[in-house]
Every structure is written in structure tokens, then in C-alpha cells.
Nucleic acid binder design. Structure first.
Lengths: 395, 395
DNA sequence: TCGCTTTAGTTCATGACTCGGACTATCTAG
DNA sequence: CTAGATAGTCCGAGTCATGAACTAAAGCGA
């Protein structure tokens, strides 16, 4: 548990500067060597050497020189669309999904298999997932994309590649990283679905905050359960045992009924999908949206009430975490037209803040988590290209 | 707001390795050069050179060689008690305080001035604080301690050296860093009192978690208001605008009364000192503890109720932040004998967790924040000795 | 007492970097 | 066609960690 920093050596210095240069290219492209030098503080000669390495590693490509105002025109540098790619996978309650994303973040393959996994054995579903993964890697190979690794989004607590707890699937511990890793030959990471959805929103969502992409926000992802992803400084906040962000089990009704988690008055028990559907008297989410569109009283009341409870939880989140924005995703994004006003009002009522952070609605739908999963892989390559080089170039 | 990483250069490499070595010496002392080399991964020769620099900077001292089992006895290295020191100051509702801490963390000067500051003008109190600070720096000088800087703990929101908002003092914005910095000639930082108390608890408190000092916990500091300090990975979690951790305004009673902050049903409104005293029918905190010791029904009920509400807030904190422990400080530490059981029960009732994190009681009393303030200064020197060197050695 | 072994710490040549200035390349303006 | 401006490369110099050889200082066994 004791984190001991690495000694700084020459190789580490180079690694850090490679990351600095690649990061700058990723942030603004096309960009010239000279611009990179000016923005990073490195000298032109250093940048030249670093860029040469990154080009020969296939992570950066030169584009045609742009016409210059005065002087020699700059050679454009950009992330290589054919460079390292990432495989994103997702196991969820009612579907499996796979995405392949190239280094620029563009999706190059996308496949979803709808099927209810609640009453199926874990290893049966894992076998299906491996099949889905194999098809995805084959597609990547046929496009000439070298996969740098993979990441699986799961609706539960993931620790060191193992799915430890998945309340809505009811599975025992499953070592997904090993199983999928062996089948695909890739290094596989396993992460909570709500956290990955938050990252997906940050990287691929449309929202901006004061001109910059959102870097401090809370993402609410209501699928069957209610999950939360906390992003601060562009990083997911995981807490001491990777269990942080469980928005669904924040207490919103201290004297409320018992929840499936063993607690009482949790948000999920008061405003989860099951509760909303029951109160609205409909069977499915699409029935619910239809009822809301039709102006059905019971449906609108149920959604408004859920919004109020969500507001109570968010008020506590705001005072505790102080994010710059809140993003509603998943089912809450779908219900936003009828829910957001009640949530906003409830937040204001309980925080008393003059200017509460913006309440935004995600446009990614249920793709957020898989895309976030694939994104973590390519982001890791960008954040530490030296590690990718030593691993993927035989030398 | 765009954080751009520094380019890694030779000087930076050395700076990072100086910090690595000094950190190792701080963690375990006395320690030999050879041990430091083994633990950091640096070579003996590198460590030798780095240690030479740190000794000539006065941050490390050699101690007498210990008797060896076999071979040449090792020269002990330890933090220099006469090295860089830190000045901690505190403005609070009913006192001012100052502490000088040497590099090892030992307090070398301590002074508290009790006086209610609620109805006094800000600049009057700041003048008093400067007087207190001057006496402290004089004491440091007479002990030959070179002050590396100072830090002021304030009961409110601090941004960039300015006290922006202090609900319980009712002051306008005060630029404390400038005022105190000019008077003392030191670089002054200003931080929230609850956050500093949490750090004080981590560095100087007695609590450990699985053998290591606590690095992931939430510190509850109940003085006049209820504050919270969130520490994750040994660092204070501040959120996007430095407002994180406001435990006092977490919603614990959604239909509860209006709080001073403008919200409704906040913890502070339901379980703050004012509320407890009123319900117990006593005037001061010492009256309250006496009544509890005497077994007074109303007092015990009031405290138990507050404990229950605190438990609701903490249940949400646990699910959102996933800390390894919770530490009760300030007034809650004093009331712990009558409050902790109700809080524990309420936490369990609302989270349903089989093994909730430990609920610990601080032993530092109201000193936690000032000591934490002084600690931040010396910790900063230890974390980045190169910055201290370039600033404090003329060359 | 005298080596022998063991461990601690220093010295110095080597190598891996970045830096900075000189150089070449390629454009526009006049 | 020349001057000026900007992009990018080349190469010598400087900095710092490395690693092996060295010196220093102890205990142990004869």
C-alpha cells in the first residue's frame, strides 16, 4: 500500500518528455514542431528528436505543410489514425457491447448484443463476451489497427481486474481480466461502468465548461441501478477501495424503506427505475417515455418525484465534492425533459446556493461506458507513450 | 485553468531525486545512505551526492554511526531539527493561535489567545493575528529556526490567499496572505481550517490503519460550525473551487427547516452546537459535558439525536467517497462518549455495510488545525527540497 | 596480532539526455 | 532577385545518473 515514487533517471526524463509532446499533439492538431516547443518549454532540437521517435513508433503522422503567412511553412503533426487503438467492452444487465477506438478517439468498430444477462451463469455470459471481443479484434486487425489493450466496463465493483461485486447481476467473483486477456492476447483492465461512462462523457461528449472540456464534474448514470462517476481534474475519483461514487446509495430519506443494499432510504430505492415504473404503473422505460409524452398524470408524478429525490442526493454531492457541473446520463438523460426541472428546484432548495453548477444532459446515451472503456486504453498510450514503445516495438 | 506539465530537464530530475531521498529519510530515520539507495532504486553514488547537497542545505544531519552486525557501521541520517521550520496560524471564532514546527514535525512554539472574534472588525482581528505572528517568528529566530513560510487556518472558504467567505465570522473578503506576508516577510498560504485539521490529524494524530498512518479518511471537525476534511491518498480533496468537504451542509432531513446557508435540512442546522445546546437546555459546551456526565436525560437525548443525524451524513459520505476511516474531531471528539454509539448505529442502519470503516476519535483537540497549518509548510519543503534550496540559499 | 569477510561510502570514467547556438530550408514581400 | 521571417536539423557543451573500482571501518577466527 505504500506508494514509493520511482527514481528519476534519464530514460524517465525522456519518457516524460515524450508524453509531454504527444499530449500537446493530441490536444491541438495539426500543430508544428516549433509550436510544440513553444508550448511545452522544450527546445526545438529536443522536440525534433522526440517527434522523430514518435513518428517511427507510428503514433504521430506528418500532414502536408500548410501555407505560411511568412517564412518556411510548418509541417503539421497529428495523432496517427492508424496508431495504437483500444478495445472497449461492456457487460451490462441487458446487453453486451464492444467498441474499437483509434488513437484519435474515433470509433472504428461498434457492436451491441441485446440480451438479458440477469438469470444467466457468469461463465456463460463471459464466453459470449469473449466471442464479441474476438469479432472486434478481428475487425481491428483487418483495418490494420494495432490494439494496445482492452478495458471491460462492468456494473459493479472492480478491483485488480476482478469483478468483485455486481448487485444487479448477482454473480460471484469473476476474474475477467485473465479470462478475456487470455482469449484475446491483450492486456485487459476492468473498471466500473459508471466511472467509465463519466470518462466517456468527458472525452467524447459535447459539453464544455468555460471553453475547456469538462474536467471536474459528476456523471449520473441511471441504467437498472443508479451509478455515479466523480471526475476531478480529469481523473476519476475512486476512493480508498475503488468504491467511491455510489450515488445510488446516498441517503435521501432517513426514515425511508429498506434498500436491497441493506441500508435505508437510499436514492436507488426511492428513485430507481423499478420504483419509477411501479409508481407510474407501466412496465418498461419506453412505455414510461410514451406516457410522459402523452401527459399521463401518474407517470409525470412518478418522474417528478424521482427528480426531487435525485436533487436531494445531488445537493449533498455538491456540498461534499464541489464539482463544476453535473451531467445526467443513461435513463436520466432520456427522462430529462420531465425530470430536470424538479431536480434543479430540489438542488436549489437544499443547497441554497445562488448559482448552483450547471445541470447538463448527456448526448451519448448508453454508449458512454463502452466508449469510455476504449478511451482509457488510447488515453493511457498518450499519457505514457514510452511504456507502449517498449512493449510493442521488439527492438 | 489548463494545467500544462513542465518539461523534464536535468534540474528537474535532480529535484525529483532530492525529494525522493529526503522523503525516505523523513519516513524512516535514522537511515543509512545504503538503505536509502536500496529503497529508492537509486545507486549508492547518486544517493551520496544528493545527501551531500541536503546536508549542506541544513535539511539532513548525520548521527553517530550505530554499531554494526558485520561490516562498516552505517552513518545515520535524519531530518535536521534545526532545518526549515513552518509557522502555523489560526483565526477562529473564539481564539487566535500560532505554532512553530521544526522539520521533524516537533512543535517548538505554541501560543493561543482566547477572545470572541464574532463582533469585531476584520482588520482589527488581522492586526491581532499579525502581532501573534510576530511574537512567533521572534521565538523561531531566537531558537535559530529558519522559517520556510507560513499558513493560516481560517473558518471559511480560502482561495489564492484570500478569505473569501466566513459564515461564522461574517467578514467581507480579506487578503490574509498579503497582509500577514508583508508583516512577517514570509510566504503565506491560507487554507480552510477543517482541511488543515484533517492533515494535522494525519501527520500528528495517533491513528493508524493497518500499520500505516491513515491516508484515506474523512475528518469531522465540529467547532461552532461543522466542517469536514476529506483526505485521499494523503492529499486533501478540494474539489473544483476549493469548496469540497462541507459536511455541515449535507442534507440529513429533506423536509427539515431552513439553514443559515439558505438550504434546508442541513446537518449543521440539525446537529450543530447551537441546536444541541438549545435542545439540551444548557448554555455552553462545558455545561453540556457536565450534564452528560451527570446522566441528564435532555442532554443525553440531544447528543444522541445529533449523533443520529451525523450518522446519516456520514452514511452518504461513505458511499460517495469510500474512505478507509472516519475521525471525529473538535467538539464531536469531546462528545464522543455519548454520541459515537448513536452515530455508529445510524451509519450501519443507512449503509447496510457489514464492516463499515472505523469510527475513530481524535486526540488532538482544537490544536489540529494550527498544527496542520504549520505542518503543510514543512511538508512542502520535504516534498520539494529543490524549491526551498533555490529560494533560501543565496548562491 | 593479523588477515579475511562484510558492509558503507566515495571517486571517476561512461553514457543518456537536454540545451543553445549555428546552420540549412522554404516561404512572403517588395 | 534579395531581404526578412519562420521551420526544422546538426552538433558541441553541460548536467546528471550509472556502475565498477576503490577506500573505509567494523567483526570474526586463527
Amino acid at each position: 500500500m505504500t506508494v514509493r515514487a520511482e527514481p528519476a533517471q534519464h530514460a524517465g526524463m525522456r519518457a516524460s518528455n515524450l508524453a509531454l509532446v504527444l499530449g500537446e499533439v493530441a490536444r491541438t492538431s495539426p500543430v508544428s514542431r516549433a509550436q510544440v516547443a513553444a508550448r511545452t518549454g522544450l527546445t526545438k532540437s529536443s522536440v525534433s528528436g522526440l517527434v522523430t521517435d514518435l513518428i517511427s513508433a507510428g503514433l504521430i503522422v506528418e500532414s502536408a505543410p500548410a501555407a505560411a503567412e511568412r517564412g518556411r511553412p510548418a509541417t503539421g503533426l497529428g495523432l496517427a489514425p492508424g496508431g495504437a487503438a483500444g478495445l472497449g467492452l461492456e457487460i451490462n444487465v441487458d446487453y453486451l457491447a464492444a467498441v474499437v477506438t483509434d488513437l484519435t478517439g474515433a470509433p472504428r468498430y461498434h457492436h451491441v448484443v441485446r440480451r438479458d444477462n440477469r438469470d444467466r451463469a457468469a461463465d456463460e455470459v463471459v464466453a459470449d463476451l469473449i466471442e464479441v471481443a474476438r469479432t472486434a479484434t478481428a475487425s481491428a486487425a483487418s483495418q490494420g489497427l494495432p490494439l494496445a489493450g482492452g478495458c471491460v466496463a462492468v456494473p459493479g465493483l472492480a478491483v485488480d481486474g476482478t469483478l468483485v461485486r455486481a448487485p444487479n447481476l448477482g454473480w460471484p467473483e469473476v476474474d475477467l481480466a485473465d479470462a478475456v486477456g487470455e482469449a484475446t492476447g491483450l492486456e485487459i483492465d476492468v473498471q466500473n461502468e459508471a466511472n467509465l461512462a463519466a470518462l466517456g462523457e468527458m472525452w467524447f461528449g459535447a459539453h464544455q465548461h468555460e471553453g475547456e472540456p469538462l474536467r471536474d464534474f459528476v456523471h449520473v448514470s441511471g441504467e437498472i441501478g443508479i451509478g455515479g462517476g466523480i471526475v476531478i481534474g480529469g481523473e476519476v475519483f475512486r476512493g480508498a477501495h475503488a468504491g467511491a461514487g455510489e450515488l445510488g446509495h446516498v441517503v435521501v430519506a432517513p426514515d425511508g424503506p429498506r434498500c436491497g443494499c441493506g441500508g435505508h432510504g437510499c436514492l436507488e430505492r426511492m428513485a430507481g427505475q423499478q420504483e419509477i415504473l411501479a409508481r407510474a404503473g407501466v412496465a418498461t422505460m419506453s412505455d414510461l417515455t410514451r406516457a410522459c409524452e402523452a401527459g399521463d398524470r401518474a407517470a409525470l408524478d412518478a418522474v417528478t418525484d424521482a427528480g426531487r429525490h435525485l436533487g436531494v442526493a445531488l445537493a449533498s454531492v455538491l456540498t461534499l465534492l464541489d464539482p463544476a457541473a453535473i451531467v445526467l446520463g443513461g435513463a436520466f438523460a432520456t427522462l430529462a425533459p420531465w425530470l430536470a426541472a424538479a431536480t434543479s428546484a430540489s438542488v436549489s432548495h437544499h443547497t441554497g446556493a445562488a448559482d448552483p453548477p450547471a445541470l447538463l444532459v448527456s448526448g451519448l446515451g448508453s454508449d458512454a461506458a463502452v466508449r469510455g472503456a476504449a478511451g482509457t486504453v488510447v488515453r493511457r498510450v498518450i499519457a505514457d507513450p514510452a511504456a507502449y514503445l517498449t512493449r510493442h516495438t521488439p527492438r
